[in-house]
Amino acid sequence: MTADFLIYGIINTIFVVLVAPLFVSLVKKIKAWTQGRRGPSIFQTYYTFLKLFQKEVIFSPNASWITRVTPWVCIAAILTASLFVPLVYVTSPAAGIGNIILFLYLLVLARFLMALLGLDAGSAFGGMGSSREMSVAAVIEPTTIIVFAALAFVFKSLNIIDMAATAATTGTPVTPTLILLGISLFIILIVETARIPVDNPETHLELTMIHEGMILEQSGRNLAILEISSAIKQTVLMALLINLIVPWGIATSLLPFVLATAIVLFIIKGAILALFMGLFESSMAKMRFFRLPNLFMMAFFFSTLIIIIEVFA
């Protein structure tokens, strides 16, 4: 592992932790504006996390070691996955970091542990949330694999860092293939972050919640860690879409001015994507559970079409 990659890891990790709550707040702010409300401050998510860290952690009498370990393993898996996707600075990959298959396995590990967490407390709502999460995962994960396979075909690489480096140095012309890939990645972003029309991250209505059902029994520091993990996952998937489809501005050197420019541009592009996410959610109602595959199939069809074009065209 080179010193350059070590610096990349430090910058990427610190930046994703600092900026992730901002995008969560921005989406909430946009949704509030579309509903004619003022909405929370863009710093409200930061305040919420600080408040949760100061509160007591209470465990269910039925909880085992899974409840105590899961928040820490989830945050470790998601932070490791964040190293696979450059946010503001890109360098040469090292030690297998950036491999697209390992990236997907890290996301699946976090999802699997979250499902166990929902079951471990012995709550009916937690079991319902875990059951729904695994049902959705059984449908969306094959689609996710096809979308990332299309990504690998388009960029001729299995390493996300190499993809970002290629996009940053040579640019990616806007083509129909890239547009279809962007739509597919956006659908994966919506599904993986449990947003409308798949799930409503702001509800506690037991008949509709999926993600919130699994963490309903969590409190204090553990809840804060799980929510931060979710925010980081959202930011990482946003960065994957931003820096591969709209790569302009990502830094390829550690010059202070270049790095500062890349940070500002990423926040601007992330804010625009958060704006689009908020408008998208506000324009749709939550889908019935058994109609969700219709949304997934759109990403599956586009990605399959991309692979066919890349292989035979």
Rank of each mutant, 00 (worst) to 15 (best):
N200Y: 08
G126W: 09
A124Q: 11
T144K: 09
S303V: 05
A138Q: 08
M128Q: 14
F23H: 04
L241S: 07
I268W: 05
L107A: 13
I7E: 03
L107N: 13
L50Y: 09
V246R: 03
E212D: 13
F112C: 02
I42T: 14
S157C: 08
L189T: 12
M114F: 04
F302M: 13
P21L: 07
A150C: 07
A20Y: 06
F266N: 05
T203K: 11
A20D: 11
F5Q: 04
K269I: 01
I242R: 04
M297N: 13
T193W: 07
I179N: 02
E217F: 00
L273I: 06
G98M: 05
Y105A: 14
Y105L: 15
D199W: 10
A165P: 00
M298D: 03
F59E: 10
I97W: 12
V27M: 05
Q234V: 01
M209L: 11
L22T: 15
V73Y: 09
L292E: 15
A164T: 15
F103E: 13
I75V: 15
Q218F: 10
F300I: 06
T80W: 12
Y8Q: 02
V19A: 15
F84W: 15
S283D: 09
T48L: 07
S131F: 04
S157L: 09
L241E: 04
K29H: 03
F296Q: 11
A63Q: 07
A137R: 07
L216C: 08
E217R: 10
T48M: 05
V236M: 15
Y46K: 03
F15I: 02
K156A: 11
A251N: 01
T91H: 01
I307V: 14
I215Q: 04
G129V: 03
R288K: 14
A152E: 10
A251Q: 03
N159Y: 08
T45L: 02
I100D: 05
V85P: 00
E310V: 03
E212N: 14
F153K: 10
G122A: 02
E212Q: 14
V264H: 02
F5G: 00
T177Y: 07
E133C: 08
T193Y: 08
L52W: 07
T235D: 13
W65E: 05
E206Y: 11
F186P: 00
V69R: 06
C74G: 08
S253C: 00
A77Q: 06
T2Q: 02
N159F: 06
Q44C: 00
F148H: 10
P173G: 00
L240S: 04
F302W: 04
Y46R: 05
S60H: 02
M128S: 15
L107Y: 12
R37W: 05
